[in-house]
Simulated scan of single mutants.
Amino acid sequence: MTVHNPSSFVDWHSKGEHASYMRTMKSPGAILDLLEIQRPAGDMSRPALQDIVLVEDMLGCSRVRGDLGGGRFDVATEKGTLAVAAPNFATTVFNDQSHRLRSLAFPLAQWQGVLDEAADGRFSIDTSLIYGRIFDSPAIRSTLRNLWALCNDEGAPSRLLARAAGFEILAELCRMGGAPLATAKGGLAPWAQRRCLELMRAQLSEDISLDELAAEARLSPFHFARMFKHSLGVPPRVYLTRLRIEKACELLEQTDLAVTQIAQEVGYSSNQVLARVFMKHRGLSPSDYRRFVCDSIGRTVSSHVPKARRAFEA
């Protein structure tokens, strides 16, 4: 019997018994590796690999337990929640339900020098990132979505897009790296944070006030604003804007709604207001974003593994 000794995250999921779980594999310029994996409930542990791996839960799960390099956890996850598995660490993960994941792997051979240069040689792979914690980040999810849509082209444009997206994601993971697993002292209680984020998502089309959010957390507006920023890194209004732009991207990608209607769906008074905010956060107009994504989808690479593997080797 041949023993499979994987050399990378992609290798682990593209060969042997795990290959049947992989739905799609993409390579944006051979700088980052993107995989979509569909697995049944049960054990999804793996050996230590030399990749930093960011995982997005596409469905949510009633119970996930294990260790990704940041200590033991036992939690329920929601659709869109994120986690980072540490490199050179044998992860253990058990899911109580079938699950679908999108994973972004940073091969250390590609990124170690970049990280060392950015930190003047003081970057620590072991301690600098937010390993093993289940967290939420609209900014990272949005970057992942863009990368997934735009990474079908190989060559210089793809490599530049992949590198830029990698920088953005790693910078956010470094910023979050000092946060503890639970809410930091001085931040929102877990129940208050959860209820406020649920309210934001449920009422994106409305103008939610600071007073309403503070009342949901049973705090004064002053203390709520300070504690929200302590917990999530940005003020409530900035976080709400990120959620709105993320939802606008989703509607532009998945529906034929007019931009004016999408603006109303995400809480902006007109398509001009949405366009101004969208341009600031995405660097292009909503119409151009939709056109670009549709063009990219038209060039989608087949999810057949051998063909995808040739793209990695190109």
Results as ranks from 00 to 15, higher is better:
220 S>E: 13
42 G>A: 04
174 C>L: 14
138 P>N: 06
141 R>L: 04
37 I>K: 07
32 L>W: 05
301 V>Q: 13
123 F>E: 07
253 E>Q: 06
204 L>Q: 10
229 K>F: 00
239 Y>V: 08
206 E>C: 11
18 H>F: 11
75 V>Q: 08
193 Q>R: 12
236 P>L: 00
193 Q>P: 03
210 L>Y: 01
270 S>F: 06
273 V>E: 12
134 I>F: 00
134 I>K: 00
186 G>A: 10
271 N>R: 11
262 I>M: 03
1 M>H: 05
93 V>M: 14
151 C>H: 01
106 F>R: 06
195 R>P: 05
201 R>Y: 02
235 P>A: 10
74 D>E: 12
28 P>L: 02
107 P>I: 03
74 D>C: 08
198 E>Y: 00
299 R>P: 03
263 A>W: 00
194 R>I: 04
302 S>C: 11
250 E>F: 08
210 L>N: 15
19 A>E: 15
160 L>M: 13
248 A>H: 04
149 A>M: 06
58 M>F: 03
42 G>E: 12
172 E>I: 12
283 G>I: 01
37 I>S: 08
80 G>Q: 03
133 R>I: 12
27 S>V: 04
11 D>R: 02
7 S>L: 03
265 E>P: 02
263 A>L: 04
312 F>I: 04
240 L>Q: 10
248 A>R: 04
308 A>G: 13
20 S>Q: 15
82 L>E: 05
174 C>P: 00
125 I>H: 02
300 T>E: 14
246 E>V: 01
79 K>L: 07
164 A>R: 07
78 E>K: 13
272 Q>L: 13
201 R>N: 11
17 E>A: 14
209 S>C: 02
306 P>G: 06
214 A>E: 09
226 R>G: 02
173 L>C: 08
121 G>N: 08
254 Q>P: 00
249 C>S: 10
44 M>I: 15
41 A>G: 10
223 H>M: 09
53 V>W: 00
265 E>H: 14
216 E>K: 06
49 L>R: 08
74 D>F: 00
3 V>C: 01
